[in-house]
Amino acid sequence: MNKILTTADLALREIARRRTVLVVLAVLPLAFYLSRRGDHLGQSIRFVCLGLGWALSTAALFAGSAARPIEPRLRLSGYGSRHLVLGRLLALWTVGLALSLPYYLLILVDQHDVRYGAIAVVMLLTVAVAAPFGLALSAVLPRELEGTLVLLIVVGLQMMTDPAATASRALPFWFSREIGTYAIDHTDSGYLDRGLLHGVVFTVALTALVAVAAGVRLRRRPHLRFMPSR
């Protein structure tokens, strides 16, 4: 447990160094919210959740890329891949909760006749999914620019794709539309159940992907060269 907490502390320190990026990421969900605040209150809630997902996924992408050079040294110090993955996820989930709380309070004050408990569930699932999603992108796409562009594409598709289409369920934040519909439009609990299942499945699957990718990467020894036997 101490190794996980130490890894989390290192990740938080690395994220805190990017102060300008943190400010931009913190304001990004507000821009999403205000873009629909004037004419579509329900859409503003859905958009702020997508903004949170994009912001935390970007922070996770940066954290994963920044941690790659120090991971081999931590491994030599006795840290396993599970310590590194869980510690980094713990740090990102903490950042996500801290980022989500002010926006949840904003909705409490600014919105009426919605199911606030369901909105809290949307935000919790958004934080749960966004952290491993960003780390998974950093594992697959080592360059931050490429990962950021993929995030832009995913969020754009999430906004434009018909949520009723089967293909839309392959997007990581589809659950936010389902649970958001339940919270805002007061639909039946089927929307809530489908959203919960989708969010939990994506959280587990993305976390497993990050763990596998970390295990494979940290077992490599690129500095070793095997000489052919004579």
Rank of each mutant, 00 (worst) to 15 (best):
L86R: 12
Y79K: 08
A16D: 06
A170N: 03
L56F: 00
L61T: 02
E144P: 00
R225N: 09
R177D: 13
V27R: 10
A131C: 09
Q158P: 01
L137T: 00
L218N: 14
T181P: 06
R225G: 11
A11V: 00
G190A: 11
L76H: 12
V114M: 12
M159G: 09
G80D: 08
V109K: 13
V114Q: 05
T166V: 13
L192N: 03
I107Q: 13
V210I: 04
R194L: 15
I15L: 12
R220Y: 08
L22S: 14
V24E: 01
H186V: 02
R37T: 02
R177P: 01
T203D: 06
G51D: 11
F62Y: 11
D9Y: 10
A66D: 10
Q158V: 00
S176W: 03
V129W: 07
D162H: 12
M159D: 00
M160K: 13
D193H: 09
P228E: 03
Y79W: 08
G190K: 05
E178S: 15
P29S: 12
L152V: 13
P172A: 05
Y191A: 14
F226D: 13
V154C: 04
F173E: 02
L145S: 08
R17Q: 10
S57H: 05
G190D: 10
W174S: 01
L99G: 07
D39T: 14
A60D: 04
P29K: 12
L218Y: 08
L145V: 10
A139H: 11
R143I: 03
V24K: 01
L196R: 11
V27H: 07
R68N: 07
L145M: 08
L28F: 14
V21Y: 01
R219M: 08
T181S: 15
A208E: 02
T161E: 02
D188P: 06
S65D: 08
L137N: 00
G87P: 06
L135C: 02
L192Q: 10
A63R: 03
L152W: 02
S100A: 15
Y191C: 14
R169Y: 08
D9K: 13
T148L: 11
V210K: 03
D113S: 12
G96T: 07
F47P: 01
G117S: 10
G78T: 06
L56E: 04
Y103P: 05
I15T: 10
L124I: 14
T203V: 07
I15D: 11
L151H: 03
I45E: 05
T181R: 15
T181W: 07
Y103S: 11
L141R: 01
P69R: 09
V122T: 15
V200N: 07
G80W: 04
L151V: 03
A139F: 04
G215H: 08
A214N: 08
A208V: 14
R13C: 05
P132W: 03
D193Q: 12
Y191P: 00
T161A: 15
R13S: 13
F32M: 14
R220N: 11
S65P: 01
A91N: 04
T7W: 00
T161V: 15
R13K: 14
A98K: 08
P172V: 04
G53R: 01
T166D: 12
V121F: 04
G134M: 00
